[in-house]
């Protein structure tokens, strides 16, 4: 009996010993969002993608040992105006029927401090992959009310839509829609067990209000 107990304890401890401080978190799509803004005529048009899935592996002792892979459903676009959403999803811009996801995979993590890092990776939008650098802030680690471990991130960056072949109106000097897109990423990720149900759902597809387009 004693031996069996010890063997069980050994196996329970094994993963902790081998992976030390490297923990995997799953992005909690209910609490994660990709906000963006782009110039429209004189003002700034604000929108968001809200269906983000993926896995973040963090080594808190050595951030360089961390990695991230995330997928955004392009269908989860929202600008608070259905007709505009439909136009942005059409072949004029994001061409969602051909390219229904935005994908990011990290290639290198360069720590800049205890809670900041620059994540280099390949970003695929509109079928075009480009190398980008994301300056990331770790907002903190904590347990939620239900006892699940959570980690929060924030990242701000700028992309040029022209780099990803989304060029409508760019050749015009007096373009109504700007080239530069401000991005604000808010990511909350949780240790896998917590959101198992949530994550098994497929990425969102055509929302009801856009089906008529």
């Amino acid at each position: 009996m004693m031996i069996i107990k010890r063997v069980i304890i050994f196996f329970l401890l094994l993963p902790n010993l081998t992976w030390a401080e490297r923990h995997s978190y799953q992005i909690d799509s209910d609490h994660s969002i990709a906000n963006w803004e782009v110039r429209n005529v004189a003002g700034l048009l604000a929108g968001a993608f809200h269906d983000i899935r993926g896995v973040i592996t963090i080594d808190r002792d050595n951030l360089a040992n961390s990695r991230v892979e995330a997928t955004i459903s392009v269908y989860s676009l929202s600008t608070g105006h259905h007709e505009r959403d439909a136009h942005l999803l059409s072949s004029d811009f994001l061409d969602v029927l051909k390219y229904n996801t935005i994908h990011f995979i990290s290639t290198k993590v360069k720590p800049n401090g205890v809670n900041t890092a620059t994540v280099e990776g390949e970003l695929t939008i509109h079928g075009i992959t480009a190398l980008v650098e994301l300056p990331i802030n770790i907002l903190g680690f904590a347990q939620d009310k239900k006892g699940y471990d959570r980690v929060g991130f924030e990242a701000n960056t700028k992309l040029k839509r022209g780099d990803y072949g989304i060029t409508l109106g760019l050749e015009d000097v007096n373009a109504m829609i700007g080239n530069e897109v401000h991005i604000n990423l808010l990511i909350e990720a949780v240790k896998p067990s917590a959101i198992a149900i949530n994550q098994t759902q497929p990425l969102s597809t055509v929302p009801k209000h856009l089906q008529k387009y």
Binding site: H31, L139, G140, F141, A142, R150, G152, F153, L186, E188
Partner: peptide, 9 residues
């Protein structure tokens, strides 16, 4: 929200 930030409009 807990450790992250939730946003809306």
């Amino acid at each position: 929200h807990v450790v992250g930030k939730v946003s809306g409009v």
